[in-house]
Design a protein around this nucleic acid. Structure first.
Lengths: 110, 110
DNA sequence: TTCATGTGTAAACAAAAGCTTTCATGAGGT
DNA sequence: ACCTCATGAAAGCTTTTGTTTACACATGAA
C-alpha cells in the first residue's frame, strides 16, 4: 500500500490526538512554531512550572510531535532544546475508520 | 477571513481531539462509517454495555462528530439512531498554532 | 564558598475520565 | 399479567491524568 499523509497505527494516532487535546500542550506547539527553545526559557515564556512543562513535553515527544535534544551552551550549561516535528494528520470519517482497523485488539471485539 | 477546512475554535478542536483519542470511540466512528445505527444494536455489534456506549456517543456528539436522532420503528419502539457528521480536521504545526491563539485564556498567559 | 543558571526525578495530592451496576420509563407481543 | 426490546440516568468504584512541592546534581561567576 502507498504511504498516505497519516499512515500511522491506530494506537499511534490515539497517542497523537491525546497529546494534542490539552490546552497547555497546544500552546507549547504554538510557541515552538516560532522556533526551537529550551525547557527553562519555555517555562518562563509560558508562565508555567518547569516540572509540569517537562511532563507535557515528554508526552508530545512520545507522540512524535516534538523532538528534544540535550545540548551545551557556550558557558557549559546543559540545555534541553525542543523543536517541532513535521507532521500532517488528516482526520475524516474515512481516515479514522482506517486507523480503527489497526487498533491493538483487532476489528470488532477482543 | 476565508473559512478554512478546520476553522474551529481552539476549545472546539480540543473537544474533537479529546473525543477521538479513545479506542472505543474510534471504533464507533469506524462502525458508523458503514451506515447509521441505533444504540442497542451498536452496543451488540461492538460488544460493549449500552450505558457505556451511550456516554461515548454523547461525547462524540458534543464534539460535533456524530449526530443523533430519536426515531420510531414500525412496531412503535423508540430508537435512537446515530450517524457520522461530515468533518475534515487537518493537523499541522501551523493549523495547531492558529487554533492555540483562540483558546479561552488568550495567547501566552492567563 | 555561595549564588546564579541549567538539568532530572520522585512523592503526594487533586481532578477528571472510564466503566459497571442498578433503577426507572414506555410500547408491543403472547 | 408477563416477557421482550427499546430508551434514559444516577451512584459508586477504579484508573488515569494533571499539578505542585521538594529534592538532587552540575556548571560558571562573584
Amino acid at each position: 500500500m502507498v504511504s498516505k499523509p497519516n499512515d500511522v497505527s491506530g494506537d499511534a494516532l490515539i497517542a497523537a490526538l491525546s497529546a494534542l487535546s490539552n490546552p497547555h500542550r497546544l500552546r507549547v506547539i504554538a510557541v515552538l512554531a516560532d522556533g526551537r527553545q529550551y525547557v527553562s526559557q519555555l517555562a518562563r515564556e509560558m508562565n508555567m512550572s518547569r516540572p509540569l512543562l517537562t511532563v507535557h513535553l515528554r508526552k508530545l515527544e512520545a507522540a512524535g510531535l516534538v523532538n528534544g535534544s540535550l545540548e551545551l551552551s557556550e558557558d557549559g550549561k546543559a540545555m534541553k532544546f525542543y523543536e517541532l516535528a513535521q507532521f500532517e494528520i488528516v482526520l475524516t470519517p474515512e481516515t479514522l475508520a482506517e486507523a480503527a482497523k489497526t487498533l491493538s485488539g483487532g476489528g470488532s471485539d477482543v
